[in-house]
Design a protein around this nucleic acid. Sequence first.
DNA 1: CTATGATTAAAACGAACGTATGAATCACGC
DNA 2: GCGTGATTCATACGTTCGTTTTAATCATAG
Lengths: 197, 197
Amino acid sequence: MRQITGEAGVNLAAVNYHFGSKESLMQEVFRRRLDWLNDERMRVLNALETEAAGKPLKPSLIVDGFFGTLLRMADDDERGGVTFLRLLGRTLTDPSEFIRTFLAHEYASVVDRYKEALFKALPDVPKAEIVWRFHFMLGATSYAIAGTDALRLVTDWQIEDADSTDRLDRLVPRLMSFLLGGLRAPLPQFPDEVTKQ
Amino acid sequence: MRQITGEAGVNLAAVNYHFGSKESLMQEVFRRRLDWLNDERMRVLNALETEAAGKPLKPSLIVDGFFGTLLRMADDDERGGVTFLRLLGRTLTDPSEFIRTFLAHEYASVVDRYKEALFKALPDVPKAEIVWRFHFMLGATSYAIAGTDALRLVTDWQIEDADSTDRLDRLVPRLMSFLLGGLRAPLPQFPDEVTKQ
DNA sequence: CTATGATTAAAACGAACGTATGAATCACGC
DNA sequence: GCGTGATTCATACGTTCGTTTTAATCATAG
């Protein structure tokens, strides 16, 4: 709080006066960004489904609508840019109880719509499997967003290191093809099912 | 500290007496687990490479050696079980500076060996792409480990909810096929390269 | 038994945190 | 210009945190 109000050039008590508490401030920060993001996601999916006129969508379009829309926020300083994406990435993995509940509520309907679209797009894949892979995709994405610096230490990163805007241009297609590859991977063999076949 | 020493039934000052500081205690916790994990990973990779006698390894074996070995720690209460995996998952995404540096140091050589094995196994995939996909795989795995409860709120999880040991039996193959699918996905098209072709 | 070094125990320190308080300042309709 | 409600300010409260201190207890060699 002292750091935030300090950099904002206002008094420490301002947050509690205007927002009530630290948690309320955080909720407002997330709401400001996530409302836009989820509206945009809904808009994209609606457009896709209208155009498809009842036919299943291509998985790549669905994945791009959900994760691509998120990643492209990084380019938009008006929407928080990379800073917000990093905050979100961290929050998705290290969730304090209250903010996790809030995120769940904020996200639920959008995630449900996209899940349904994926069910329809991949009728041969069991629904449970799709939900799991959605989970994995979220993880890969959160990590890619939040941990840009984290991995640079683990591996000695002999990778091109242009300015960050350039890196984002390349991160999105890279992550997209990874996510799609994972989403459409052959179904797993469970140990207890091997004998059944 | 008070919670830890409390549950251990010892005095608060015990940690500072025996370990020096909270950070040193954490380092020791991670070292105890990661030394074993990374030794095991090295052992597995060495065995694979010996058996292959210079020929490239199957990517699935490499991925299983790195991520499968990690996940199977969850079954081994002697090695920390799910508790340690959750701690590690959280730490990989929310890294305080000092512990991230420590993890990087602890991991570097193992990650390098596995990266080299992947380079050799996938000669047609640019090295930079493999490093990125390694990153993505780490993210999906960390999230799968740490966020078992987190996603259950986001999606209304109409998934079988057996006891956790059963869920682990199924999580490993599920995650493995996702990771492999992502690792071997078609290469991405970068916007600025489209015109070149 | 006693001396000595290691360990444990109780208590407090100083810093950081979110929040609350009361006075000072501001904006603005009358 | 004055009064009133909203806002800003300095300040302090009460906790929690990691650490430190000092005394008590323990183990053990002589």
